[in-house]
Design a protein around this nucleic acid. Structure first.
Lengths: 198, 198
DNA sequence: CGGCTACTATGACCGTGGTCATAATCGGCT
DNA sequence: AGCCGATTATGACCACGGTCATAGTAGCCG
């Protein structure tokens, strides 16, 4: 959607993220990325002289920024902002995709973590940074809802952990139930953390 | 530890699980598994005529049974069994490993899910089965503590989801905090589900 | 001893894929 | 037109790895 509006470089990063979250890092080929992006193969070494590692890192970074920006958009979509509502929206993004397009893909950051966390390249720092750029706006959103700052950090971490794990389990079982269960069970806990109601 | 007491076949399955949870499925080679297990290369096609797919599936199955059996052992290790105590023990297994041996490895079932969930081989069914053999005894343990059966299923799913996600995040950030946060934040929610206190 | 089964040994094949080298094109600018 | 940087094109190289083929060895049983 709207791929032609972006340059070929950005399209390749986007395609890399798509393929990585579906097949994993190791199983995603450079030629495959170029083909998926409709970009010429020769552009790979031109835009990514750092090779596959650079491309993967940028894909992970893109995913992290995307997730971070989504927080604000989810927040804007809630008529009455509550932690449980925000978490439900985060979960719904995945249940919607899974019911509409199947359980083909997971989170690209998770895939890169699994495939590259032990190989101490720059990719491990990239995934750490991605989680940070995801968690920071989430914690900020929680504080904006009345959650104490210290607690907000913990709950933001918990929300991302649970979401990532639920994505994983739902994909494995090809059933969105782990995702819906996470939203349902965690919601009250999150709402109970707002100060005026505590 | 005690590898020589098991046959070469079981050692290879065990080694496969070890390597998969560290490097991922695609990055783990058959020759590498044999070498890690101290087993002859020729035994691979003898014991695993189904090739890599069979070996990976058995490694995933082994991991699932291992996790399931751990539940009973954790339960036995608690002087006063509570859901939060059980979850804390599950988390502690990972924090102990990470503080003692570093953040090199994650969960093999998660790795197999990320790498093989879209390629619709038998591995996807293997990971689904692994999660089931993990969740069933966990849910049973919860009911034994006084959690209503319907709720126990949900909480077991939530516990595994959160644990898997926290493992992922901890590994990415090379910091056990997501794990400890998960145990701390989720504990009260779990204990509140026991009926006499509900 | 002969033979049979279980296991091990080893080399080769072949596809895949990341990377490099080299050249061609293209677009603007003077 | 002519130059130059940015981009694209294409083929080759090389390592890795899963798999197959073909033996060789070991141990037990009749």
């Amino acid at each position: 959607m709207g791929e032609s509006r972006h340059g070929p470089r950005e399209r390749m990063v986007f395609s890399a993220a798509q393929l990585i979250r579906r097949d994993g890092v190791a199983a995603t080929g450079m030629r495959e990325v170029a083909a998926h992006a409709g970009a010429p193969r020769g552009s790979l070494q031109h835009y990514f002289p750092g090779g596959k590692e650079q491309l993967v890192n940028e894909a992970v970074g893109w995913a992290g920024r995307y997730a971070g920006k989504r927080i604000a958009r989810f927040l804007a979509g809630l008529e009455e902002p509550t932690p449980s509502g925000l978490f439900a929206a985060m979960v719904a993004q995945w249940t919607d995709e899974y019911t509409a397009r199947g359980f083909a893909a997971g989170c690209p950051v998770a895939a890169a973590t699994v495939d590259c966390a032990s190989a101490d390249g720059s990719t491990r720092e990239a995934v750490a940074a991605a989680f940070t750029t995801w968690r920071a706006p989430l914690a900020e959103a929680l504080t904006g809802m009345g959650v104490p700052a210290a607690r907000a950090e913990s709950l933001a971490t918990l929300m991302i952990s649970t979401l990532e794990g639920a994505i994983l389990m739902s994909r494995a079982e090809q059933d969105a139930q782990p995702l819906t269960t996470a939203a349902r069970e965690l919601g009250p806990l999150l709402d109970a953390a707002v100060t005026p109601a505590g």
